[in-house]
């Protein structure tokens, strides 16, 4: 019962759409794009190719009530088979090279790849390490890079938008 009273007292905390702000603007665009291109339903598979987990924390933020990714028809899925988009973080380590490639292969077409964080592009502080293969695009084709260390959830959303933009019209 306490749970329900709490639910009632909190109400909806998701940032409303007419609240202005960059994120919301982005979100609106994302919504429009996804609707057009993927029937406004995009499954996202997150791949940690060797990150420091900073990006993951931010990505997790996307599912929180505040950002509530779901309202745009985006959702994280459990299998690349169900996914339309791969969200790759971190520099690609040697151990993660093959898994990353396999994940890419396992995802049915049409599909998108968004590389999140600086490491994904430049390998960041890990550059030159014996354990690192290189940036994500050295392994799989990347549609969009999202910069930041770590990038904010809004940045990530922007990246997703950019990626959806690149999806060839069906």
């Amino acid at each position: 019962m306490r749970l329900f009273s709490k639910i009632l007292s909190v109400g909806i905390v998701t940032e409303p759409l007419d609240n202005g702000g960059e994120e919301v603007e982005l979100a609106r665009q994302v919504a429009a794009k996804t609707q057009k291109l993927l029937g406004r339903a995009v499954g996202i598979r997150e791949v940690d190719a060797g990150s420091c987990n900073g990006c993951e924390i931010e990505i997790t933020g996307l599912t929180s009530p505040i950002y509530d990714l779901e309202r745009f028809g985006l959702c994280f899925v459990a299998s690349p088979r169900h996914a339309d988009m791969l969200l790759v973080t971190g520099p690609v380590t040697r151990n993660m090279e093959v898994p990353l490639r396999k994940t890419y292969e396992a995802t049915p077409d049409p599909k998108l790849v968004v590389a999140v964080g600086d490491c994904a592009k430049t390998c960041g502080v890990f550059q030159g390490s014996y354990a690192v293969v290189g940036s994500v695009d050295a392994v799989i084709p990347v549609d969009v890079f999202v910069h930041g260390c770590p990038p904010e959830p809004s940045d990530i959303l922007r990246g997703i938008l950019a990626a959806l933009d690149r999806l060839p019209p069906k």
Partner: peptide
């Protein structure tokens, strides 16, 4: 306490899946 996807979302998912390989 989320806004959530609209109730019609499952239809969209189906539509998307039908058009994927």
């Amino acid at each position: 306490s989320r806004l959530g996807a609209p109730p019609g979302q499952p239809y969209r998912e189906l539509g998307k899946l039908f058009h994927k390989e």
